[in-house]
């Protein structure tokens, strides 16, 4: 059984129909992981007991398989009366899992900012929150644009894990087509190409963002 281009083309509309779900999951998880990871890093940086607990939490999250998070949220939480939809569980699970990695990216991005910047902010009596928003975060962004882009691609590539929760994303849909027709090569290839296209779009977007972020410096 060879590769039938015509059949491959015929599966495109079905698989492409799931691109919305894939994008929704990837974007929500990317935003969720960024917000959560940033908060984690801020608390960890603050030190004290909360900082210590967060440090442990980040390490814990990073050393647990993403599937464990999805199963836990989906099958264990209902025992405690918390019942979430498959889509929510997927987004929360991916957000949690990647927040641990993004916290590390934020850490590196902040560590690369010269100490004098915080001192200047403090000497100008800027508050803690103002310092984060107006001094640290913008400079961090330019340090992390590239690694963040890589993690967004990783998040995109992790969306098929949601198949275990029967969320209809692209790879799951491709697999459905495959099991209905007993032809695997074509639908899986189509899904692969679509993922590749999305990843390229993300990389391009990050490149453009980087150019904008660095427009003010002589880099």
């Amino acid at each position: 059984m060879g590769f039938d281009p015509e059949f491959a083309l015929s599966t495109v509309p079905t698989i492409l129909g799931a691109i919305g779900t894939t994008l929704l999951v990837a974007i929500s998880s990317g935003l969720g992981a960024s917000a959560l990871g940033f908060c984690f890093e801020m608390v960890r940086r603050g030190g004290g007991t909360a900082g210590l607990i967060t440090r442990f939490l980040i390490d814990f999250i990073r050393s647990t398989p993403v599937l464990a998070w999805l199963y836990f949220l989906y099958f264990v939480l209902p025992f405690y009366g918390i019942r979430l939809g498959a889509m929510s569980v997927g987004v929360i699970g991916l957000s949690l899992y990647f927040s641990g990695y993004l916290a590390e990216v934020f850490k590196a991005g902040i560590d690369a900012i010269p100490k004098g910047q915080q001192e200047a902010a403090k000497a100008l009596s800027l508050g803690r929150l103002d310092t984060i928003v107006f001094v640290i975060a913008p400079q961090m962004l330019r340090n992390i644009a590239a690694p963040m882009g890589n993690y967004f691609v990783s998040i995109l590539k992790a969306t098929p894990y949601l198949a275990v929760l029967a969320v209809p994303e692209m790879l799951g849909r491709a697999f459905d087509v495959a099991s209905e027709t007993y032809r695997y090569a074509e639908p899986l290839t189509v899904a692969g190409i679509l993922f590749l296209a999305l990843a390229l779009v993300i990389s391009r977007a990050v490149k453009r963002l980087e150019l904008r972020l660095f427009k003010d410096s002589s880099h």
Partner: peptide, 12 residues
Amino acid sequence: GMVFQGFNLFPH
């Protein structure tokens, strides 16, 4: 008011 050896202006 404080002026530092390394200026410490906000580059962005």
